[in-house]
Design a protein around this nucleic acid. Structure first.
Lengths: 354, 354
DNA sequence: ACTCAGAATGAAAGCGGTTACATTTTTTCC
DNA sequence: GGAAAAAATGTAACCGCTTTCATTCTGAGT
């Protein structure tokens, strides 16, 4: 490894000068600058980032961190890519942490990245309390942008999707198709995003004077497996729903699984609409109608906001709300007249996948 | 931020002593150790990782890097999670880089992480040449584990799936069902994994004396979009294939899309088998038959191998080959007698998604 | 030609830890 | 009890770079 001092020796200048051509070239005379640059390329010198970060220089850390629930969830892998691309453009490395929606794991992560003295952090506000670690970080002056929801008690940049609106639109769409028995498969309400999506559902139902039916409201940890289980429960009801709204892509996948295994045809037997449109939903049969929240965009925007803040620590914090978009494909239909659910037909035949 | 010297002052010892209780507690007498530990927890001290890394201590960097083609590809997001979990257990942060299968971008990344003096690197060998940067890193003594294929010209730990075997099995399965007109949708052959999967295809065909038909061999950059396009081309042929083998999950998704939009029924009209089983394939209609390569496992194993090497730099390098597994679901059927492809039926009716 | 401001450069002190080496304390053992 | 070995602790150098401050070099102004 060639060091800065090697370059200095080779170019016949002091280390300070080399450092200057690296950081503020205008302070070095043209001839010496040229000499140094030549030496750098001749020796293939690359500054050690660790040393750089340690030695202060507030904007040279070139490292940001992204904390997400789970990279295996396609939604977050798209967010991650959006962040990474911007980071990359800024010659910045990305530290990734999976917090599993677990506040203590998130805390651990945030402590670690603080110990890494990263330039900034992008994280969802799992813990909304006044003394959450995120809040502390902001107070310490570390640039933070919150995704997937706003953070209270403190001024912070944030970018998130209008969950309420998106899910209200989805449910409204179902209602317009004639559905009343609309079920929701929803993630845990202590997670803000899900709470809002549930809120949108309630709002649309209320706006159409459709009373909420307890047994059509299913909650559980977000996973494909759980989606399948909850959907199966729903579809096994005496009077099953005629449409299901799934609150994220994993639940959607699980519900699709359940429907196939019960031999139900979409949208003839049941309609399904999902929150969180991901590319693979075009491959479902039928292709899925879903509310799109551009995950890549979310990550991208968050990262840009973060770099803005890193460059201008004093700037006023900003909240960017991304509009969700209803992507209509083929998974929702009208309610059949005198709708009788096939799995409750007289012959009682139930198809099951073996 | 409390510093090590604050702790030292508070405990009434030197900084060296504090550092020792952190790094080699057995070298400190029990009473002082207790004092120091008390001070640490009292002051909430957390060592600065950057300083630690800079000051040498070869095993204290606690940072590894994962370079993958694209985190948006579910396969890699599972790999990433597998790596991250192990990293996390080792109190280690993970730097993520998306190289997009682009050798120069990969090189950039590798240079960056070297400049970060990470403990180790997990990366696929994009550039198989003798003087690729990966090879140089290994020669410099940086722990590297290669995933997704072996690296030549140098001794290095690696873990990868037996692509050849997996795809041969898949194709063999189709052949046993009676298929002869078997097409392959394959990623670029300069990428080792795809080359091997194509190899497996050829092997199975040859083993059954089925000649290769040029027009059933489709290649392209791996993406869902490309998968759809290539599958549409395939299915528009005069004599279309009766089965398609897709070489990764994106192609599989694209092919499913194409089949739906062409109004084809699976497996009655075409059979499809994929390489790369991911959870969402259970949600396809019909659920997909595919070769599973446990991506999470791959990441997990690679990370464990990496930490082994970090702890024992001298150990002999290891190659772990993961066995793929054929997961049979409902997307493959036998060839219809006198098979006529529906989109070439006399009535010429072609369903198209609008 | 002579000052003096301003530009260019260098010397050296950090950044926050680790560790080789020196020093002090304790233990061991005759 | 005292010398020697071992254990505990402290001092200070170092990791590789940045930056303040001092110093030297330029060139403008008179």
């Amino acid at each position: 490894m060639t060091l800065l001092r090697d370059v200095a020796r080779y170019a016949g200048v002091s280390t300070a000068t080399v450092s200057r051509v690296l950081n503020s070239p205008e302070k070095v005379s043209a001839p010496t600058r040229a000499k140094v640059i030549a030496a750098i390329s001749k020796l293939g010198y690359r500054p050690n980032r660790v040393a750089r970060r340690l030695s202060g220089r507030k904007d040279a850390a070139r490292m940001i961190s992204l904390i997400i629930p789970d990279i295996q969830n396609p939604f977050y892998s798209f967010v991650a890519r959006g962040v990474e691309d911007v980071a990359n453009q800024n010659d910045c490395t990305l530290i990734l942490g999976n917090a599993d929606g677990n506040a203590s794991k998130e805390e651990t992560y945030l402590n670690v990245v603080r110990a890494e003295s990263v330039d900034g952090i992008i994280a969802p506000p799992i813990d909304q309390s006044k003394d959450s670690i995120v809040v502390r970080l902001v107070q310490e002056g570390i640039p933070v942008v919150s995704i997937d929801g706003p953070l209270h008690h403190v001024e912070v940049d944030s970018v998130y999707v209008d969950n309420m609106k998106g899910s209200a639109e989805a449910v409204q769409y179902l209602i317009q198709l004639g559905h009343h028995r609309i079920a929701i498969l929803c993630g845990p309400l202590n997670y803000l995003g899900f709470k809002e999506r549930f809120g949108g559902y309630k709002q649309a139902m209320a706006a159409n004077q459709i009373p909420l039916v307890e047994r059509y409201l299913k909650f559980g940890q977000s996973s494909q497996e759980m989606g399948r289980i909850l959907a199966e429960e729903l579809l096994a009801l005496e009077t099953p729903p005629t449409a299901i709204f799934t609150s994220d892509n994993l639940f959607t996948a699980g519900a699709m699984e359940a429907m196939y295994s019960l031999g139900l045809s979409i949208p003839n037997d049941v309609s399904i609409i999902g929150f969180d449109d991901i590319p693979v939903m075009r491959s479902y049969n039928p292709p899925l109608t879903a509310v799109r929240q551009s995950a890549y965009n979310l990550g991208n925007t968050a990262a840009e906001l973060l770099f803005e803040r890193i460059k201008h620590p004093g700037r006023k914090s900003e909240k960017i709300i991304l509009e969700p978009e209803l992507i209509v494909r083929d998974s929702c239909g009208s309610v059949p007249e005198n709708h009788i659910h096939p799995i409750n037909r007289d012959d009682g035949e139930k198809k099951r996948r073996v």
